[in-house]
Amino acid sequence: MTRLFAAIETLGQSVTRRVDRLGLAARFSGALFLVLWICIRRTTLIIRELYFSGVRSLSIIAVSGLFVGMVLAVQGYEVLQRYGSGESLGVIVALSLVRELGPVVTALLFAGRASSAVTAEIGLMRATEQLAAMDMMAVDPLSRVIAPRFLAAILSMPLLAAIFSTAGIFGAWIIGVQLIGIDDGAFWSQMQASVDVRIDVLDGLLKSVVFGTAVGLISVFEGYFAAPTAEGISSATTRTVVISSLSVLLLDLVLTVMMFRGLS
């Protein structure tokens, strides 16, 4: 009986801790959104973070997109040619990339490549009292350090997702048109006839803006509240990747359901 009580107590404690942390995250987000407008005018700071988050992720995103597109083309063609509709390859690849894989895979790669680095950087700045020093120099770390990194994630994500999808379609074009020999005109015209700019392209970009917000927020939050020790920073970095990935997949489900319901 006492063991049962102990188990319930442990469960209660872990729920309380999580709710506490959620509350902390909500207050942190509120404070962050309040200083965003101050930060927007500091373009040099945002450009610096765009460099570290966006430009540095460019190669991994472009190469991954290319390979994903190529694999989709090989797999897709294998199925399509059974029904004699190999020219629809462009449609299949473009729709999967633009609607789903582009935003989602980009966000997952971004969480691993850029966000984890942001968490570690902010965590280290906290551990070495750089944030405290800034605060003592009457400079708010939230608007000087946190907000530019958050904004950079929001801005980079749709650009990177567009680059990912474009690279993927190009990869599919290499496999489908250049290697397999699908008609070039049919590849593009079928794609154009089926991909809708508003429903597919814009909704895909909207998804990646939402993912950018979520991943950016998680990475700065985990960094800002990381325990100021080596283990604290490394576990915060891990948490950023895990929580970001799960949130991206969950948000993708929610957004997809919302977008398709809006359609019918």
Partner: peptide, 21 residues
Amino acid sequence: VGLFVAIGILAMVFMALKVGN
């Protein structure tokens, strides 16, 4: 960063014009 943003916007334009109609 300018190059990065330009490539990103080009990719979006590509998706709007060449991929979508």
